[in-house]
Amino acid sequence: MSTKTALIVGASRSLGLALATEFTRRGWDVIGTVRGESRTDLHELAEKSGGSVTVESLDTTRPEQISALRDRLAGRTLDLLFVNAAITRGNIPVGDVPEEMFVEVMVTNALSPMRVVESFRSLVTPTGTIGVMSSRQGSIGLNTRGGQDVYRASKSALNQLMRSYAVRYADAAHTLLLMCPGHVRTELGGPDAPLSIDQSIPGVVDTIEHHSGEPGLRFLNYQDQEVPW
């Protein structure tokens, strides 16, 4: 059986790095992207991987870099495309959010991941998987506490855009996943979050692998449970 290949966009640290590490541990070849040219923990993982991990540079907010990476990978076949990209700019009521901040979060968290998906979808095998990192904060039904207005809105927008994508390519057999990793202790999740990265990411990968070959769009968490839209 040939080795499976994953492209993980946003793999320099935190959840993305953990995804790259976990897939490598399970025998996958991993192409991971980082922003800029600085050395990251992903470079160290690549050096220790015996060739199974390669590092590419990509700023997803720059369309010309998306196109350039697509050209560089034109001869590759992907079993998994997974986009892990998100920023937050603090817990600010939406009426107080500067317009440039709103645009920055929306472009980074919603528009840019979809540009990546649209650009790389043709490299994914016909029964492969396309996933993006969402959040329970993108669930309208679960928003009973408010807060994090713009971050929530950006993840809801991402979910809606993936829904539209799924309808547009309804004849394709790709597995489409919106993944919620849970509330994890990261820079974004904060130090008081209940989950460690090691508690979250193996479950995310289990869920991705479990649904391989199942066409259609699902919004799931790291425990393979449906998340309300």
Rank of each mutant, 00 (worst) to 15 (best):
S2R: 13
K4F: 03
A6C: 08
A11F: 02
A11T: 02
A18E: 10
A20Y: 06
F23E: 00
R25N: 13
W28P: 00
W28K: 00
D29R: 15
D29E: 11
V30H: 06
T33F: 01
R35H: 10
R39A: 10
L45C: 06
E47P: 00
S49E: 05
S57E: 12
S57Y: 00
L58N: 01
T60G: 12
E64L: 03
Q65T: 11
Q65W: 00
Q65K: 04
I66V: 15
R70D: 08
D71R: 14
D71G: 13
R72M: 07
A74E: 06
T77L: 12
G90E: 05
N91D: 15
V94I: 15
V97N: 07
E104M: 10
E104G: 03
T108Y: 12
N109Q: 09
L111V: 13
R115C: 01
E118R: 14
R121G: 01
V124I: 11
T127S: 15
T127E: 13
I130P: 04
I130T: 01
G131D: 09
V132L: 14
S134K: 06
G141C: 07
R145Y: 10
R145L: 08
G146P: 02
R152H: 12
R152L: 09
A153W: 03
A153D: 01
K155N: 02
N159T: 04
M162E: 05
R163C: 05
A166D: 04
R168H: 13
A170P: 00
A172H: 12
L178T: 07
L178P: 00
M179C: 08
L188R: 04
G189Y: 11
G190W: 10
P191G: 11
P194C: 02
S196L: 13
I197M: 05
S200Y: 07
I201W: 12
P202W: 13
V204M: 15
D206I: 08
I208C: 09
E209A: 13
H210C: 04
G216I: 08
L217M: 06
R218C: 05
N221H: 09
Y222C: 04
Y222R: 11
V227K: 07
V227Q: 05
